[in-house]
Amino acid sequence: MTEKRFNPLPGFRLTLGLSVFYLSAIVLIPIAALFIKALDVSWADFWRLAFNARALAAYKLTFGASLVAALANAVFGTLLAWVLVRYRFPGRRLIDALVDFPFALPTAVAGLTLASLFSENGWLGRFLVPYGIRGAFTPLGVVIALTFVGLPFAVRTLQPVLENFDRGVEEAAATLGAGRLRTFLTVIAPTLVPTIVTGFALAFARAIGEYGSIVFISGNVPYQTEIAPFLIVMRLEEYDYTGAMALAVVLMVCSFLLLAAINWLEHWASHFEKQ
């Protein structure tokens, strides 16, 4: 170890050692176990297990619904963040606090209550179902649940950036004669894009792994409303560990790619934020 500068604080070796040990025991070894086990499977078997018709249908639903939900969050999350930061109205603080509710609420409870809201007799379902809008036990239900769990990510990513947005920039545009719409489109929106995209990516990443809320609302019908994490559980219950593992490896690789993308996005956004 080459130390560039002398640091008089004690405890470096101890704390770093403990951190690495605990990290390995709790996180790294289990992850390694998955990939070590995966090495035992032949490529042909892996392909068959990970990309059969049922698995493909599950991926399609998982990624498709996550994409739609993340897009919905990008739109409504941006709107909500804007309204919360820029305007003062009765109930603002309550809504601001409630934005974290999907995050604080156990996903099982979220799934339970959403399924009940959108079911035929539910508060929303009784108005929507007669028009053919079925929110429970359909792919739409999956989208609804994923939008719910992803909302805090979209709002909370944008909110601080919006709060720190230099009002001087808007004022400068105004002194140069620009109207409100022009200022928004040419000066404000372009600067927020990287942050909105980051929020979108975070909501998307969260949605891909989501399990708890979906179990309740989707109905879990193979080929129709079965998401990839649920299929893993099904395989496990059939004691098909290899099948479960193949699906898990695909999900893990996707998550890692997304994580890398998000890190890059955040770097881009913070670079963008600095003047």
């Binding site: 230099d166 001087g168 920039v169 400068a172 545009a173 040419t186 000066v187 372009p190 003047q275």
Partner: peptide
């Protein structure tokens, strides 16, 4: 403006 307030996307 004191803190420049330049349009950083331009």
């Amino acid at each position: 403006f004191q803190a420049y307030a330049l349009f950083k996307n331009m």
